[in-house]
Design a protein around this nucleic acid. Sequence first.
DNA 1: CATTAACGATACGGAACCGATCCGTATCGT
DNA 2: ACGATACGGATCGGTTCCGTATCGTTAATG
Lengths: 202, 202
Amino acid sequence: MSDMTSTADAPRSPGRPRSIRADEAIIEATLDLLAEGSTIEALSIEAIATRAGVGKATIYRRWAGKDALLLDALRRLKGVMPQPAGDSVRDDLLLLVGAIGQNADPRASKIMPCLVPAVNRSPDQFQLYQNIIAPRRQLMREVLRRGIEEGLLRADIDVEVTMALLTGPMLIQRVLQWNPDLDGRKLPAQVVDTVLDGIRAR
Amino acid sequence: MSDMTSTADAPRSPGRPRSIRADEAIIEATLDLLAEGSTIEALSIEAIATRAGVGKATIYRRWAGKDALLLDALRRLKGVMPQPAGDSVRDDLLLLVGAIGQNADPRASKIMPCLVPAVNRSPDQFQLYQNIIAPRRQLMREVLRRGIEEGLLRADIDVEVTMALLTGPMLIQRVLQWNPDLDGRKLPAQVVDTVLDGIRAR
DNA sequence: CATTAACGATACGGAACCGATCCGTATCGT
DNA sequence: ACGATACGGATCGGTTCCGTATCGTTAATG
């Protein structure tokens, strides 16, 4: 998996080279089908080939099977990580929280729910998931630590728990549509401000 | 679907009555298979029949198809709702938050992730999901409103957002294992107390 | 132009699951 | 004992998918 085309440089190539368009088409077809609601195991190589306008053999020539293909396709989905400005802790948190479940690729939000069961079943896919979200989590961790150093945030908070508090509501709402009454646009600010100030009267 | 055995009372019944054991076995087999990691559409009537020690015909005699069977099986899973004591708002929240993703049936937490994709795809199953969690949400809503009336909680908080704040972290942790470093046992208290007091220094 | 390999298309055997139907048996009310 | 019905088990034809094989075609190299 993911040796893919080339090892670059080399002057080699006897026969017809592999078409980059086919690579693209296969990956795109995979993501499209997932985004349209297919589950991972309902997803078939045949369907992908048809959708991509490609022979099945062309897929098997590149990947060992569905799993290897999926791995590559999902990697391609990742999207851009937001970059906190560093001026205001609240603004930075707002940026990171607002980005949760909103990737550059609009298909991502439709695909993520399909992965939940897989993540729980296969340690490999769990690790893949963790690898994808780890950098984002690290970003939020740094913002919170900075807030503590600056004295804006209490020094005794548990940073990991706080991250769960900021992330959880966004995820269940965007991935699970947990509460239809909530407004997805206003939610990031509401979450950040409520976590900052708490709900206890004083 | 769900006409099932009986309409109670009636003196009717010419032939051999349906075995309650078969009903039980079929439902149990369905839940077991789901809990073992089968996805909804990977789940087959044959597998269920085999696991239940039952002929396929026995299943088709009771339900129109897989969907109808699943609906009944999931209803059976619901489990017991916690009952807030009403003395302390914090204790009540702790009880409700601690119960999230922890049903009476230990299989529930393994099955829930499998439902996430289905919930997003089918309006019917989305409605089913909403119907299951609605009573629990109502319970938490009432505790929060009581807290406001008692003056313990600020009057200007958004109750729906607060519920998402309390529920989200528990769900992503228990369903998704979002952060392996978090301690599931301590989490409810940490979530409740952090939401109550906020993280801002003062 | 000859060579070489990837191309799209299609077919294959094998497997899994579906809904439907039929056994012969077991268990009810009458 | 009798009809009626449910039981577990088995089988059928149809569908879908997998992974491989084989077409004639196409595109680069030499």
